[in-house]
Computed example of a mutant assay.
Amino acid sequence: MPGKMLDFYIDFTSPFTYLCNLKLPDLVAKYGCRLNYHPIDIPTAKLAAGNYGPSNRQVPAKIRALMQDLNRWADHYGVPFKFPKGLNAWRMNIGTFYAIEKDKARQYVDEAYRLVWAEGVDPDDEGVLRGLAKTAGLDSDEFMAFVSSRAGEKAYEASRVAAHARGVYGVPIMMLDDQIWWGNDRLMFVEEYLKAHAA
């Protein structure tokens, strides 16, 4: 299986993808796989899949349980967890394509999730975005131009449309061969599959 790509659907507004990303990159590398990052937008993915229900934040009973669950997972992984100051990650998501082009995807995604869900920053803050680019080893000025460009928007739109066509309805979703896994709590099943299908 060396060289195989596992498709990883992400949105920096997702705390469960933050948790998933803490383990997944090293897990797939262990079995000779690489990650293919696909940024999407959760609300539009839900609508495209026919899910017209309210967001989790609009259901008090659900958000209460989810917050407890998120804190349990963070404690379990021994990592910080802090709800961010904002949830507009449009430009941060677009920035992933620039990082992929510059072969800095892992550094970028790891740092973006750390900033948003460990430090609780606003993902749309200009200073945050510039600092993220610098930490990931990217040119900050070029990066900022890209995340507000038509080329960046088109890359993001193409990624969302392709995800919808594959039936992606949320994140974190992982796909390899004909297999689909959803959620950071499915990583043991990802590993079982990789182990069984390793070269």
Rank of each mutant, 00 (worst) to 15 (best):
V59W: 13
R160C: 14
A89R: 00
R72G: 07
D122I: 07
S159L: 03
R160N: 09
D122H: 06
A45K: 04
D141K: 11
A158C: 10
A196V: 03
E142G: 12
V121Y: 11
F189A: 03
A165T: 04
D11C: 03
D177C: 06
H38A: 12
T44L: 11
A49P: 02
V161F: 13
V109D: 03
A45W: 03
P2Y: 14
I94V: 07
S159W: 00
A45C: 05
N36Q: 09
P54A: 10
V190G: 01
N51I: 15
G78Q: 03
R64N: 09
L87A: 13
A118L: 08
P84C: 07
I100C: 11
A99F: 09
W117C: 02
H76P: 02
N71Q: 11
H164A: 14
E153K: 12
L6R: 03
L70H: 00
K23V: 08
L6F: 06
H76F: 12
D69I: 07
G167Q: 05
K30F: 12
F83H: 08
Y193A: 10
A198Q: 13
Y77F: 04
D75V: 07
Q68Y: 09
N36L: 07
K85G: 14
T17L: 14
D41W: 15
Q68P: 01
A105D: 04
R186N: 11
D110L: 13
V161A: 14
R166M: 04
A155I: 07
I173Q: 05
E153M: 12
P54H: 07
G131V: 02
M188A: 14
M174L: 06
N36H: 09
L24A: 05
P25N: 07
W90H: 15
A99R: 04
L47W: 10
E192S: 11
A49W: 05
K30T: 05
A99M: 05
D103H: 15
I173L: 09
G53W: 15
D178M: 12
Y9L: 00
I180H: 13
L22V: 15
V128N: 01
K4G: 07
M188V: 14
A196M: 11
Y113V: 05
M188T: 10
D139Q: 09
G3R: 04
N51A: 15
K23P: 09
V190T: 01
Q68N: 07
E153R: 11
S140Q: 11
P172Q: 00
E126R: 12
L27N: 03
I10S: 02
E101F: 13
D124Q: 06
F83I: 11
R130G: 06
I180L: 15
L176M: 00
M5S: 13
A133W: 03
R166W: 05
E142W: 06
L176C: 02
N88A: 05
N51C: 15
A196W: 11
V109Y: 06
V190S: 02
M92H: 01
L132M: 08
L6D: 03
Y193E: 06
A105T: 08
F97S: 10
I42D: 02
D69N: 02
A133M: 04
Y18N: 02
Y113G: 06
A158F: 12
P39H: 02
